[in-house]
């Protein structure tokens, strides 16, 4: 349950930063946020994930690619150092992991957890960030617009302290998301090459090789 909650927040942060048109961000205007979110029909982005922990001398770097097509098709793909792919759409979610040189479906609890996570995506795609009682969101203006999401319930205690989403005011693009698990453990995801409303081959959401 705690694991699922963590994944939910992680994914929530990911989708929040990817699909939120930053020009609409306003502390009290979630209705407008929902309206602007509806304008995005597709999205692709590269991401670099930096995992920092006390046990590591330097961040562990992972990278991959994210795809979205309205209303609910998602491909979340890690390529290095370990490959994994999550496909979600039409109410179904499948996770694929490498085995014997090919990708096979992960039928363990991890896949079920991802299904729970991505099952909520439809709501997030509609900009319903303020309807999740698991956290509160605040916005701070600066060189970057910083959205801080803080868990409200005790069920997150010891798992996640906060999520920070940085949005560039210069070019209105989302720059990064930082998930702080504890004082000695955090995950920073930097997004690059974000492209919206460009056609994506439907096979991207169906085929894993």
């Amino acid at each position: 349950m705690r694991q699922n909650s963590f994944l939910k927040l992680t994914c929530l942060a990911l989708f929040y930063l990817l699909i939120s048109p930053v020009w609409s961000v306003s502390a009290d205007d979630f209705a407008k946020l929902r309206k602007d979110s509806a304008r995005i029909s597709t999205m692709t982005a590269d991401f670099v994930q930096k995992k920092s922990m006390k046990i590591l001398s330097k961040p562990l770097i992972s990278n991959g690619k994210f795809y979205y097509a309205a209303p609910d098709s998602i491909r979340w793909e890690y390529s290095k150092p370990l490959k994994s792919v999550v496909l979600s759409g039409k109410g179904q979610t499948k996770r694929y992991i490498p085995s014997g040189g090919k990708m096979v479906e992960d039928k363990t609890g991890g896949a079920k957890a991802m299904q729970i996570v991505l099952g909520d995506v439809a709501g997030w795609m509609n900009g319903k960030y303020d309807t999740n009682p698991a956290f509160t969101a605040t916005i701070r203006e600066g060189n970057d617009t910083m959205i801080t999401m803080t868990p409200t319930g005790k069920n997150m205690a010891g798992m996640i302290e906060k999520i920070e989403i940085a949005i560039s005011q210069k070019n209105a693009s989302v720059k990064s998301v930082r998930i702080v698990e504890s004082a000695t453990s955090e995950t920073q995801i930097d997004f690059q090459n974000v492209v919206v409303n460009k056609s994506i081959d439907p096979s991207v959401f169906q085929v894993v090789q």
Partner: peptide, 10 residues
């Protein structure tokens, strides 16, 4: 020792 998922979850 630490074990984490691909997604970075410890």
């Amino acid at each position: 020792c630490a074990i984490m998922s691909t997604e970075g979850m410890v």
